[in-house]
């Protein structure tokens, strides 16, 4: 018994590539069947094109570097956590999990490791709009921030650094969102800028400790450096 048109349309709409023998036979069984197949083919072509998004050129290289990079073999980038009542809690938890069993050979190692761990995630969540307690977080590490820079903070959380707690910030600037990893107790020696994963990290000495500013290659460093240097100050120094 041949397949009726209604059943044929149901299968065509669910599984146009079906290899069911009755379905295949029905495709040629009449003009309305052929018409339905032609329409389905046209729609599938558009559907396929619509779903075919561009893939970052460096994706495969980043993935294959996973097994080549010794840092990744030491521990997971970050441990998955449920996004709880606020994004702040989530990212703080990510940071704490990421810290476990970690050591770094240099500040450059630390910055790359940290950014790879949760940089993209934090950047993406920076405009989530959740409330956060900026002042309390800063006070936890004995730091104050200028009112002007506070307005540009899209996200902030405490994070591990080579020498105790620090800050992981995303600043919304006229150059776009910038990631800042502030290390209040880490002094820089002879360091150079870092290039990794298509990003550029500038290492800066601050009034207290140091910071890494991570953004695109065309970052205008000079202005950011001045603003950061003046905006992040130890509480005792600015009181």
């Amino acid at each position: 018994m041949s397949m009726n048109y209604s059943e044929f349309r149901r299968i065509l709409g669910a599984d146009p590539q079906s290899q069911d023998s009755e379905f295949l036979a029905a495709r040629e069984s009449g003009p309305e069947f052929k018409q339905a197949v032609a329409e389905a083919r046209a729609f599938e072509q558009k559907l396929k094109t619509a779903l075919q998004l561009d893939v970052p050129a460096d994706l495969n290289a980043d993935i294959t570097s996973i097994c080549a990079h010794p840092l990744h073999q030491r521990a997971s980038w970050w441990r998955p956590v449920a996004v709880a009542a606020s994004v702040l809690i989530t990212v703080a938890a990510i940071g704490m999990a990421w810290k476990m069993n970690r050591t770094w050979d240099s500040v450059e190692d630390y910055v790359m490791d940290h950014y790879r761990a949760d940089g993209a995630k934090v950047l993406a969540l920076a405009n989530a709009g959740d409330a956060f307690k900026l002042r309390e977080i800063l006070a936890d590490i004995g730091i104050e921030m200028s009112a002007k820079m506070a307005q540009s903070v899209g996200f902030i959380t405490l994070c591990p650094t080579p020498d105790g707690d620090g800050l992981h910030l995303v600043l919304n600037t006229d150059q776009g969102p910038l990631t800042v990893i502030y290390m209040p107790e880490t002094r820089l020696g002879d360091v150079e800028d870092i290039h990794f994963n298509g990003m550029h990290a500038h290492l800066l000495s601050m009034q207290s400790g140091s910071a890494a500013v991570i953004g695109s290659e065309d970052l205008q460093l000079e202005r950011i450096y001045t603003e950061l240097y003046e905006a992040l100050t130890p509480i005792s120094a600015s009181a």
């Binding site: 779903l51 075919q52 998004l53 893939v55 970052p56 994706l59 495969n60 980043d62 993935i63 996973i66 990744h72 997971s76 980038w77 998955p80 993209a120 995630k121 950047l123 993406a124």
Partner: peptide, 28 residues
């Protein structure tokens, strides 16, 4: 599989950075 996984991730989370992160975490 990285291309298919990225596209799939992009469509379920809708964000390039997160999609890439998801795929990298998957492969890790």
């Amino acid at each position: 599989y990285s291309t298919d996984l990225y596209r799939y991730a992009m469509w379920i989370c809708g964000n390039d950075a997160l999609a890439k992160d998801l795929v990298q975490e998957t492969f890790l």
